[in-house]
């Protein structure tokens, strides 16, 4: 009788330990949210990190830099992926909630100007790009093209890429009203690939064979020109975490910054920092 009791007790303890262990494992979770530009970096590094650290679960969501910033301020995500630095207002909001945020540059990105592959244009100046996007130029013949209406495609006004492009290329001027606003880099690349008169801008990682990247001021958007900042539209990409982030989150960020992590960044078409 006593013996069976003991066995039962042991079984219960083993079971409880297993449950606790499973729960401990479950709590190894990181939530990343934010920029669609940084999404491929977060996703690809998360996959490798999860493979190397069994039991860790990283979920990566898009939504845009602003969404990421709001979530990390609220504490609903651990890592905010952002294609622009955190604004002062956002930092203040986090401080208001008692959170101190820490930013990490995880990669460099170039915003390439793309056109349809059939477009004969061989280069644009930064001034021409600005004029096209602000509405001063509306026909390809004005910039040495073969004529026809320029279909101007932009990211929607809420995206970090839009903000970065606005700052880097338009110097704060307003995008023309008849620009077609698309919700993602992918959508812009897809539309430019299908529209002969189109011009768009995407992160370096989204240049495919279906579109043509146009040199700006005579500089091609490439790894070297972005790292050296010769290419006019280059920018750092960020991940923001709480300054008191868990050990696991720190390890994940360190992994992205490591040599292996940066190799993954490169493989995704971005420019690594080392």
């Amino acid at each position: 009788m006593k013996r069976t009791n003991r066995i039962a007790a042991a079984a219960v303890m083993v079971f409880a330990a297993a449950v606790l262990f499973a729960q401990a494992k479950k709590s190894q979770k990181i939530v990343c949210e934010g920029s669609t530009t940084v999404f491929p970096i977060a996703q690809a590094t998360a996959e490798v990190f999860m493979e190397r650290n069994p039991g860790v679960e990283i979920s990566v969501r898009g939504g845009g830099s602003g969404v990421g910033a709001a979530s990390v301020c609220e504490g609903t995500c651990d890592v905010a992926t952002m294609s622009r630095p955190m604004r002062d207002s956002e930092m203040a909001k986090a401080a208001g909630k008692g959170r101190k945020l820490k930013g990490h540059i995880v990669a460099m990105d170039g915003i390439a100007v793309i056109v349809h592959p059939s477009n004969p244009i061989t280069g644009l100046t930064a001034a021409q790009v600005k004029d096209i996007y602000t509405g001063k130029i509306s026909d390809w013949s004005a910039v040495g093209g073969s004529g026809g209406k320029i279909v101007v495609i932009s990211r929607d006004s809420a995206s970090g890429t839009f903000e970065a492009f606005g700052a880097l290329a338009l110097k704060g001027a307003k995008v023309r009203g008849d620009a077609l606003m698309q919700a993602s880099n992918q959508a812009i690349a897809g539309m430019v690939a299908k529209t002969p008169g189109a011009i768009g801008y995407v992160g370096l990682g989204y240049i495919t064979d279906e579109v043509k990247a146009v040199p700006v001021n005579g500089v091609k958007a490439s790894r070297e020109t972005v790292l050296s900042k010769k290419f006019p539209y280059s920018r750092p990409l960020y991940m923001y975490t709480s300054a008191e982030a868990s050990e696991l989150v720190k390890r994940y960020i360190d992994f992205i910054k490591s040599e292996d992590g940066q190799k993954i960044v490169e493989a995704q078409g971005f420019v690594g920092l080392r």
């Binding site: 969404v67 929607d156 809420a158």
Partner: peptide, 16 residues
Amino acid sequence: RPMTSTIAAEMGEAVI
């Protein structure tokens, strides 16, 4: 750009 898609495209990023 109709009313509905304006709300859908921008609400996610509008600061509350």
